[in-house]
Design a protein around this nucleic acid. Structure first.
Lengths: 350, 350
DNA sequence: TGCGGAATTTGTAACGATATATATGGAGGT
DNA sequence: ACCTCCATATATATCGTTACAAATTCCGCA
């Protein structure tokens, strides 16, 4: 029902009832259509908006004319007049090292946004400035109609601010705030729970997990799932200190290698990031150990990478593209009107 | 000094016969500053633009006032009035499987764009529509001031169209068109040339290369570099048919595995993509061969991935983030004014 | 005293769309 | 005939900014 410019075959030169200027072709505006149909600009505007105040026959006539001249509304003018921007801001931390994390999500988001009037704008967040800055800027200056971001924290400032401002947003990950809000999350509790169970079932007796930085909510989910499993089974465990899923891969490798060389080494690893998982593998390899034999590893898979990695390891899949699709979808709902918050929350199952 | 009535802390709905808006504090506009300084709106506008027609002292006074109230120009209004959008469109194919290809480039671009008034907008290109569609749409409807895209073809339609339209753009990869145009490329010729030389120096006598799809210019650069090296050295070679760097990883793996099982198998592989390289490695592994011994592989590295991959392979680095930085930088130059084209071209060395 | 003219500043009209208020025309009732 | 009322359509004001033309001040100098 919208947004097609694929018209453009070449209907120009032949017809030539050019009402106004002969010069190439200026962008058609409402005025163009008004002159073409003999109606007033206002009428044309309403007709294109399918306002029932305008006679059905007139609406159709106007819409036909608009299609014929390839009319597309000027977004700047719409934006100035209505205050709506038709923009959705995705706040992205360019330093997120996670392989393809951003692109997968973007792929999903653009897929959902296709056919809507919304544009996806990448708003970078630089780690040398407070996390909330880009959010403040967007809201305060009406740079977008909605915001998407990830790496949510339990008492996330951005969420608090956006809730307070009543500004539409969907974040990837939950908070622990009292006020409910829209989000899309992955069931990281079950991820680590299942991962631990798998390792234990394979015979592992001392599990080692690398978690995201503590400030993120999913750190706690992962920790909790892991702890529940190891307690249920009563096996040994340790949680990486000093390194996280955000650490440089080399640091992860060195750390794991060092730990493996110490007494009473872990025999099962859980890793929620692809790059860190590769680092764990390389550490194991470099010590002459064999994965799947001396040591086991369960990793989160977010791309096709591990289908090609040898030796094969166990993985549990998280579909970030689907997360992106959902986030955009929920945001559209949220912007469209007052939907109950609980319909704007989703946890993707493992 | 403070004119007020717009100052408010909390305009309740109690009386509100006066002004009106419930919003906490309305966004400051030129008018706000005009009233604040006692000048005309026009003067304020020019002063903020540092127009030398306005007295230096006035300019400073206005700029101070603007800073004080936190004035930011309304982009929609500017855009409507001037026709400039302050937007740069990055056309991205969401199906590009290359790991992190997009994010690396985006990282570089946003770094360059930081501090400029430009926003980076992701314009997806869906493979079920002609490549030129989004470009046409952007130019025709003035959706951006400049365009960035990749995967350039020897006689790229997008380039031809944009040149014809006089629309600023920078692409990743060159064309073979007569008209010069801005681009950023990587020296893929030298990449494959050096890769082949390395393999031959290590004792390989039959090289196998996987190339990008033939329609891309860098297919030819890679092929040429490769051919030059194998001819110089007089070793056997073959070029993958049916599979390309865009093929699904599983397809690449199966194909390579099949070839390795045939008589007279290759003993050296060159691969310009990370995922395909992983696929080649897994094929080799699955046949019980040893990389670095029975068979060798040189891959292009665009992320930190191969630092963690075992066994270690030879890689040659391409800095996509730097490419993104450069592309954005050249585009800014191009949009700023008439720079000689040869200053808007860059080939990143191997 | 007045006048040319540089140095400043100001007023007005757009840009293209939409919200609000106002007109037009005819059908229907009295 | 007159008036009301509904269905349509039009006119006008406005969003915030900038281009262009016009006005104002303040000199020095004849």
């Amino acid at each position: 029902m919208s947004l097609d410019d694929a018209e453009d075959g070449r209907p120009q030169n032949t017809a030539g009832p050019s009402t106004s200027n002969p010069g190439s072709h200026r962008k058609p505006t409402l005025k163009t259509i008004a002159e073409l149909t003999g109606l007033a600009v206002t009428t044309v505007s309403r007709a294109l908006g399918d306002d029932p105040l305008i006679a059905r026959e007139t609406r159709q006539r106007v819409q036909a004319a608009a299609a014929q001249v390839g009319y597309l509304p000027d977004r700047a003018a719409q934006r100035l007049r209505t205050g709506r921007t038709n923009v959705i801001s995705l706040i992205l931390d360019p330093h997120e090292e996670i392989l393809g994390y951003g692109t997968s999500m973007i792929r999903g988001m653009t897929a959902t946004l296709r056919g809507t009037p919304y544009h996806l704008v990448i708003t970078p967040h630089f780690s040398d400035t407070p996390q909330i800055d880009p959010v403040r800027h967007i809201v305060h200056n009406r740079m977008a109609d909605g915001i998407l971001f990830s790496r949510t924290e339990p008492s996330d400032e951005r969420v608090k601010f956006l809730l307070e401002a009543g500004f539409p947003f969907v974040c990837h990950g939950r908070t622990e705030l009292a006020t409910p809000h829209p989000y899309v999350d992955y069931d990281n509790y079950t991820f680590t729970y299942q991962a631990a169970k798998k390792l234990i079932a394979s015979g592992c007796r001392r599990l080692f997990i690398i978690l995201p930085p503590e400030r993120f909510t999913f750190h706690h989910h992962m920790r909790h799932g892991f702890m529940t499993a190891v307690r249920e089974e009563g096996v040994g465990f340790e949680i990486a200190v000093d390194i996280t899923l955000d650490s440089k891969a080399d640091a992860v490798r060195d750390h794991v290698a060092a730990r493996l060389a110490e007494p009473d080494p872990p025999d099962g690893f859980i890793c929620g990031g692809e790059v860190s998982a590769m680092a764990v593998m390389s550490a194991i390899h470099d010590l002459g150990l064999t994965i799947g034999q001396d040591v086991r590893l369960v990793a989160k898979q977010t791309s096709g990478l591990f289908d090609q990695v040898r030796p094969r390891i166990e993985t549990i899949y998280e579909d970030l593209s689907e997360a992106g699709r959902l986030m955009a979808g929920l945001l559209l709902k949220r912007m469209a009107g007052a939907t109950p918050v609980d319909e704007l929350q989703a946890v993707l199952e493992v």
